[in-house]
Simulated scan of single mutants.
Amino acid sequence: MTATMTAPPAKPVVKARKQSMTKKRREALAAYAFLAPDVIGLLIFVALPMVLAFGVAFFKVDGFGNYRYVGLGNYRLMAGDDQLWASLKVTAIYVVSFVPIAFVVSFALAMLVRNHFKGIGWVRSAFFLPNVVSLVVVGLIWQFLLVDKRGALSKLLAPLGLGDVSFLGTPSLALGTYVVISVWFLMGYQMLVFLAGLKDVPKELEDAAQIDGASAWQRFRYVIWPLLRPTSFFVVVNSTIGAVTGLQAFDLVYVLTKGGPARATSTVVIYIYEQAFTFNNMGYAAALTTVVVALLILCTGVMFAVTRGGRFDED
């Protein structure tokens, strides 16, 4: 009589699979639960206002809530609006100046505080501290420092003969001063983003390159920098959008100069605010907003296409 081989029961395997699927469902539900507040907030406070602004752009709206359909009339006004084009020029100069300077400064700081040394936590906190302060407070502090002839900076520069320089009251200096303050405010945040990217660079690759005789520059050029492309792309896109529509594009300018002197710091966001709340031209302001958002989407799409979203070259 020969023994017959019998297959083991499949019930334990099926039970394990069901438990695994149940665990995955619980994890997915937990992830959706954590994401839900942000998604709901974005829908209510971002997506819905954007849709409403797009609709209002086709109407002429006064300060009393009277609507009159004008079709594309608000968009046609933009072609002959010299102040709009001047504000776009100021915004473009600010973006072209702020984005690369902030990028280089924050990346240099990240490389500086990358390695651990005594007091590294205090150094990182000191660089990041301006970012946790309200922009209104930041503007007031810098306004106190830069007030003409009586500010702390004017007194410090007095021995050099620069005590009478009006950094916020001179059209040729106001925008540059605004760029410097913006870089000072955001360099800590971007430093932390770069620092997080540097933490993901495998130390083994750097050690292997060093063993092979690569210099510090070669290790940076061929090991660190390629691995930081996604992080660099995020920083550039995020800082570009923030420079056009972020808090520093409105709050900081409004507190420091309110768009002056001689509209030297009048960004496109300041101009939209003036049209909406100073001249009660809500329809035109909504049209301007939709155009600015469309331009940002276009620029972001171009950056994605050119850099492939910061991904590595496959060749």
Results as ranks from 00 to 15, higher is better:
169 G>V: 00
167 F>K: 09
183 V>C: 03
172 S>H: 13
179 V>W: 00
184 W>G: 00
189 Y>S: 10
166 S>T: 12
186 L>T: 05
173 L>D: 13
167 F>I: 08
168 L>G: 03
166 S>G: 14
172 S>Y: 10
193 V>D: 02
195 L>K: 08
175 L>S: 02
172 S>G: 10
175 L>A: 03
193 V>A: 04
180 V>F: 12
174 A>Y: 01
188 G>A: 09
191 M>W: 01
165 V>D: 10
163 G>R: 12
182 S>M: 03
188 G>Y: 05
169 G>R: 07
186 L>W: 14
166 S>A: 15
168 L>A: 07
179 V>E: 02
186 L>I: 05
178 Y>C: 01
193 V>K: 05
179 V>K: 06
179 V>D: 01
173 L>Y: 15
195 L>W: 05
187 M>V: 07
163 G>V: 10
174 A>P: 04
185 F>I: 03
168 L>E: 01
183 V>D: 02
166 S>E: 14
171 P>D: 15
192 L>E: 11
182 S>C: 02
166 S>V: 09
167 F>L: 14
188 G>W: 05
163 G>T: 10
193 V>H: 04
176 G>Y: 07
179 V>Y: 04
183 V>M: 02
166 S>M: 14
195 L>A: 11
182 S>L: 02
164 D>L: 11
167 F>T: 08
179 V>L: 03
194 F>Y: 15
173 L>N: 12
172 S>R: 12
174 A>C: 07
190 Q>I: 08
175 L>V: 06
174 A>N: 08
173 L>F: 14
171 P>V: 12
165 V>L: 11
196 A>Q: 11
181 I>A: 03
187 M>A: 07
182 S>Q: 03
171 P>E: 14
194 F>P: 00
181 I>L: 06
181 I>Y: 00
180 V>N: 03
180 V>R: 04
196 A>C: 09
178 Y>R: 07
191 M>R: 02
170 T>E: 15
181 I>T: 03
185 F>R: 02
172 S>C: 09
173 L>V: 11
187 M>T: 09
177 T>Q: 13
184 W>P: 01
185 F>H: 05
170 T>M: 10
189 Y>H: 10
180 V>K: 04
191 M>A: 02
175 L>H: 04
193 V>G: 01
